[in-house]
Write a protein that binds this DNA or RNA. Structure first.
Length: 836
DNA sequence: AGCACGCCGACT
DNA sequence: GTCGGCGTGCTC
């Protein structure tokens, strides 16, 4: 039997399956999706089995054999292996990169050089020096020892070890390992015949009180128990237990334990809540599609506070009752303890939780519950979409408009697209939930394919318990300036904060400053510190007092004098939250402020810590960036202030209006979630802008219609799809020349395809719209240099039946064949979130 | 990605 | 005359 294996080398030339013989003893372990160690050239690599077959077309003399299988249960299912193939074509990445993205980091292979005793060790042993004997003995004892461990033990013998390897006294082997240390715990295994412990009690001396206590406990509880737990329960020392095991009364050995990050926490079991009519209608729609095994995508548009989560929970329950599994995606930021609690409370141990705050080992343990079939529900951030379930019934993506569902590194996939792809394979249902759906999704509820919309729209427009939406005031900052107020707080917002302080209610302040970094500028000559390797200004980091480049990590010390004109008038710009905090302190002496931004939330768990403090009313104001806008729910917050609503609007990005609208709507939803009425103040320099206006009226429909009109006119998504191609090279003239050659070739290919596609179109008249494709550029990228490489980009716009990825793929291969030696890097981003 | 093979400049 | 620079090509 032969296996086709994708090896762990992300390179063009190795981006194909290699054939290996499956040795007889491994046959029952090797499956499609297995992770295997295979000899590849001179070394041993990790690989993924993507196909099994009886025959191989490769010359039998050249075929090697699979060396070992790395997991008892294959970490990938055949469906995921197929998905990997699809992703590599769709997102133009190496197949192994796609497969790797599906697995927890702990399963990424680690390669180590190992040393073993060689065939000629005996000859050395007679004649050798004491040093040599020491080394040989050490290696013999260990069996196989990592090169690092050996060097640690014999720090000065590097040369000698090398000689020993050359003479054959030692031999070098490759070790493929996981990047993971499984946590082990000493565990006591009571004997099968528990009665024999009675004899033990008799034999022990009268003084061995503690030992007898241990034995009695085991007789009462004849199941394996962790040593630590027993010691804790009976208040005995490890020595007591150890001496009993030494006498052979029971076995004490290490077993692998799952690290359960939620261990020791009990979750209050909750029962399904009664649904409102609106909720019930939505639930029925979802449930009947799941029950019918019908692949369908629902867009659930529900205002904040309309009770989407309860609908999710009950739909999942239906899905589980049918013996199928469910995946729930939430943005990382809203994967809060409260969120986890709701799922754990309803489904208990059937839930695995995957989020980035877990350590590698913890995440692996949660993930392993899936392959072990211990859980039926996974809740997690983006990559949880790859949960290796085999009977998926329902996939839920909450806050589907969030840009964090798009992975920014290769493979640059969008979890929404993966969800639909997987659901198709499983004949499963996808629910996309949001108060402010992405325009892509809204458009799909309106565009028809085969007589019906691709997505079905479900609406939930009432807040649970009929709480009114908060009143939103727009404050025109230009008027404030005219009125002589140069502070960053308008008078209405100032009054509102003052009022909350009196009433002992809380305030959330949002400083919307994406795209703004804290850079350093000289006020005399205008000099800005920039990275010597990248075309970007350096960011000031408060904690280390260093200037750092976000792209390459270059760092330099903060300067007090301008390097260009020696002026001392040099200051930090855009230190947004900090400056707001200072000003708050001046305006309201004694005010208690919690500031949340990149500076204060880098530490692990700090995010949660600040929110808990705020919840416990240890502060009057929560001040932060984007991160305070999402998913928070504090009963005493009655005021939300947006310091500058339009910073994002001014970015040169076709999605900026959409982002502004989403952010304002979300943050407005933070106010008055409970009995008390909420109020929102939005400070802006462009109060007439439709994204601000519509957000203030809670008018999603109005915003969507207006924005869709604009997108249609300009030919942007969702009416046309985009692909961003970025070229980089160390030498600018070469870069320009190559990029231009590439684009010319791409245009030729596109024209060919369009011609044949549209001939077909006019002949058949079935596709809803004629195919169209244009290639814009190349032009210099907005960040024109990163890590000493110049960057150019081009944007491909297309609609209709165009195999754009495939087309770009062949242009890339054409380019690489034509000029293999030129070090031009090409990076492709399908459906980019940002055009920079 | 590694690693070996292979063809041209600065040294014993 | 060699040692070694990294350009090119291969890995079942």
């Amino acid at each position: 039997m032969y296996a086709k294996v994708i090896v762990d080398v992300p390179a063009k030339q190795t981006n194909r399956a290699f054939d290996y013989v499956v040795p007889l003893p491994l046959r029952k372990w090797v499956e499609v999706g297995s992770r295997v160690g295979v000899p590849f050239g001179p070394r041993v690599l990790q690989g993924f089995v993507v196909e099994l077959q009886e025959e191989s077309s490769v010359d039998p003399k050249r075929v090697k054999a699979i060396q070992h299988v790395m997991d008892v249960v294959p970490p990938l299912t055949p469906e995921l292996v197929g998905l990997g193939r699809w992703m590599s074509g769709m997102y133009l990445c190496h197949e192994v990169t796609a497969l790797q993205a599906m697995l927890p980091g702990a399963l990424k292979a680690k390669y180590e050089r190992g040393i073993q005793i060689g065939d000629h060790a005996g000859e050395q042993a007679r004649t050798a020096l004491p040093d040599v004997l020491d080394i040989l003995e050490f290696v013999r004892l260990k069996g196989t020892v990592g090169m690092e461990a050996l060097m640690e033990r014999f720090p000065n013998e590097g040369l000698l070890v090398k000689q020993l390897i050359e003479s054959g006294a030692l031999s070098e082997v490759q070790i493929v390992k996981d990047r993971m240390n499984t946590k082990k715990a000493l565990t006591i295994f009571p004997p099968e015949q528990i009665g024999v412990l009675e004899d033990a009690v008799q034999e022990l001396s009268v003084r061995a009180v503690k030992q007898k206590e241990v034995l009695r406990f085991l007789m009462d509880h004849p199941v394996p128990i962790r040593l630590a737990e027993l010691m804790d329960k009976l208040q005995v020392g490890a020595g007591t237990v150890k001496s009993l095991s030494d006498k052979g009364w029971f076995e004490l050995r290490e077993v692998e334990v799952g690290r359960d990050p939620y261990a020791g926490r009990t979750f209050l079991r909750t029962k399904p809540l009664p649904l409102t009519d609106e909720q019930d209608h939505v639930f029925q729609e979802i449930q009947s599609a799941v029950a019918a095994h019908r692949h369908e995508v629902f867009l659930l548009q529900g205002v904040t506070g309309s009770g989407k989560t309860e609908v999710y929970l009950q739909s999942i329950q239906e899905c589980l009752d049918q013996g199928r599994e469910a995946i729930v995606l939430v943005p990382e930021i809203s994967l809060t303890p409260q969120m986890v609690e709701r799922f754990k409370g309803r489904f208990g141990d059937l839930v695995a939780v995957l989020h980035s705050r877990l350590s590698n080992g913890e995440r692996y343990d949660e993930w392993r519950k899936i392959t072990r079939r211990q859980v039926k529900v996974v809740i997690g951030a983006r990559s949880a979409i790859f949960a290796p379930f085999t009977r998926i019934g329902l996939i839920i993506i909450d806050e589907e408009h969030e840009s964090s569902y798009k992975q920014e590194e290769s493979p640059k996939y969008h979890a929404r697209e993966i969800a639909v792809q997987r659901a198709l394979q499983h004949q499963a249902v996808v629910v996309l939930g949001s108060a402010t759906p992405s325009l892509e999704s809204i458009q799909r509820t309106r565009s028809y394919r085969g007589g019906k919309p691709s997505y079905r729209l479900l609406l939930m427009q009432q807040r649970v318990a009929g709480r009114p939406m908060p009143k939103v005031h727009i404050v025109d900052m230009r008027e404030e300036l005219k009125g002589g107020n140069r502070s960053m707080f308008s008078r209405p917002l100032y009054k509102a904060i003052e009022e909350r302080l009196h009433k002992k209610e809380q305030t959330v302040l949002l400083l919307n400053r994406r795209g703004y970094a804290t850079f350093v500028m000289c006020r005399t000559c205008g000099f800005v510190s920039t990275c010597p390797h990248c075309d970007i200004s350096l960011t000031y980091h408060q904690s280390s007092r260093m200037l750092r480049c976000h792209y390459c990590g270059y760092a330099e010390r903060e300067v007090s004098q301008c390097p260009s004109c020696s002026s001392e008038h040099i200051r930090h710009f855009g230190t947004g939250t900090q400056r707001v905090e200072e000003e708050l302190g001046k305006l309201f002496p004694g005010i208690r402020v919690i500031r949340m931004d990149v500076d204060t939330t880098t530490e692990k768990g700090s995010h949660e810590k600040w929110l808990t403090m705020f919840r416990e009313k240890q502060a009057d104001v929560l001040l932060g960036t984007q991160m305070v806008a999402k998913g928070l729910d504090f009963p005493d917050v009655t005021l939300v202030g947006v310091i500058a609503a339009d910073t994002v609007l001014n970015l040169p990005d076709f999605r900026s209006a959409e982002r502004t609208f989403q952010l304002l709507t979300q943050v407005a939803g933070r106010a008055g979630r409970h009995e008390k009425l909420g109020e929102v103040f939005v400070q802006t320099y462009t109060p007439e802008h439709y994204s601000v206006q519509c957000a203030s009226r809670h008018d999603f429909g109005g915003f969507a219609n207006h924005e869709l009109d604009i997108r249609a006119t300009l030919g942007y998504p969702p009416f046309q799809r985009l692909i961003l191609i970025t070229f980089s090279h160390e030498e600018l003239p070469l870069l320009v020349k190559s990029a231009e050659a590439f684009v010319t070739r791409l245009k030729e290919l596109a024209a060919d395809q369009l011609r044949s596609e549209n001939d077909l179109f006019s002949a058949v008249e079935q596709t809803p719209e004629p195919a169209h494709m244009e290639v814009l550029g190349p032009v210099a990228s907005p960040i024109s240099r990163i890590k000493d490489r110049y960057r150019f980009q081009c944007v491909v716009k297309y609609r209709g039946n165009v195999q754009a990825s495939q087309l770009i793929g062949s242009a890339v291969s054409w380019f690489e064949e034509r000029s293999s030696k030129e070090k031009l890097q090409i990076s492709v981003d399908v459906d980019p979130q940002y055009l920079m």
